[in-house]
Design a binder for these strands. Structure first.
Lengths: 219, 219
DNA sequence: CCGCATCCGGGGCGATACTG
DNA sequence: CAGTATCGCCCCGGATGCGG
């Protein structure tokens, strides 16, 4: 929580966000919306509970997070982003987009994977090539974690969970599935890496990002 | 340097960039281009010399920084960004842009200000409203630090230093000058805050950003 | 000088236990 | 459920030394 003591906007931003876990807390709040303490802990495996409490206080003091007392039936406290906190969306997107290039070696030993993190990649990389086509729904499962991707009217959305009657289902090891969704692996290479595609293949191809240039791929 | 152990692109990015000073080192390399160790130290007041050496090694291992042996006459080692490191430009811009909102209270006690940091604000906030007008040159001095802003053919550029025959000169306390350049303060309020404008006022107004909405201003 | 390595004190961080 | 309390450890800050 020590300041860099530089009158520079980046240094000021890091005075608020630079401590360990802070930006991941903002990630959780952006992905989940206003959340309970316990749900935040679940989305931040490895965080010490005192650190989460400390960081939430600091973010509150900086005007990034606001504490809301939930209405009657639940009666718990919710932590949500203020408008200033919502303003971090672009910065987190840019950082996460840069980080995609660091995921091509697959998960390391003991790396955790949660479904709602996968939805970030949809938002970062995928887009509908046929915005006026009929709505499509795709389920993507990496390991045991699955998300549902909806495209309707050119708008893509994704959320954790499973679908009743998706147009297609993608499943496979995390590297193949996330590599496909992030555009790091073209469909053929992802299939070679263990990805299985069942259902309407063209509905998947319609949403896939342009693969990264050949030089960026795994050697 | 401890990993978050999450297979998420943001967590991966922070595994590389999340340590203290790391993103400020990238800032210096983006602003200065390939730099000597000593010049980096000068742009990072407060950093311990062993930490700078550690961070440069870690960034090198992550493929963000490359060490170049300088050619014959100088014979020193230069640290520069790799293409992967250059890819951080958007993320740093987004973070720095968010941090502008934290600068409206002016420099804190003992805050340092260096001219080349000010050039970031030009890049982030200013644009030429008359891209086809004749080229303009403006000098802006905050305290003792001064930069030169050039606009030619709609392209804005800024660098540290002073100008021989600028069209206008801005000078004043850091809060007024940086508030103006970043769009946090309209010209009238900046002048009320101690800013002096000599020379062609319209050449300054031509480059100023739209001021932030009234709600964002200092009360 | 330039580019570090070494040493040491203090505090941020990680892990676990505990509580209203 | 939403934290507080405690205890090591290691990261960080600051100073100094040192080879090329």
């Amino acid at each position: 929580v020590r300041s860099y003591r530089q009158y520079c906007s980046l240094a000021r931003a890091l005075d608020v966000l630079g401590d360990r876990w802070t930006l991941l807390i903002v990630r959780e709040l952006l992905l989940r919306g206003p959340s309970r303490y316990t749900d935040l802990r679940a989305g931040l495996p490895g965080i010490a509970t005192n650190l989460l409490a400390d960081r939430l206080r600091e973010l509150e003091a900086a005007g990034v997070v606001a504490r809301e007392e939930a209405p009657a039936p639940v009666a718990t406290t919710l932590f949500g982003l203020t408008p200033r906190g919502e303003g971090l969306k672009d910065a987190l997107r840019a950082l996460a987009s840069w980080g995609i290039g660091l995921m091509v070696d697959g998960p390391h030993a003991d790396d955790e994977l949660q479904a709602h993190w996968m939805t970030m990649l949809v938002d970062l990389s995928m887009h509908d090539r046929e915005p006026h086509g009929r709505p499509v729904q795709i389920e993507a499962r990496a390991g045991e974690e699955s998300i549902v991707i909806d495209s309707s009217g050119g708008e893509l959305s994704a959320h954790a969970g499973t679908a009743e009657h998706p147009d297609a289902v993608l499943a496979g090891p995390p590297l193949a599935v996330l590599g496909l969704l992030s555009g790091q692996l073209p469909l053929e290479l992802a299939e070679a890496g263990g990805l299985s595609l069942t259902g309407a293949r063209e509905s998947v191809e319609r949403l896939l990002p342009e693969p990264a240039s050949a030089g960026d791929l795994v050697q």
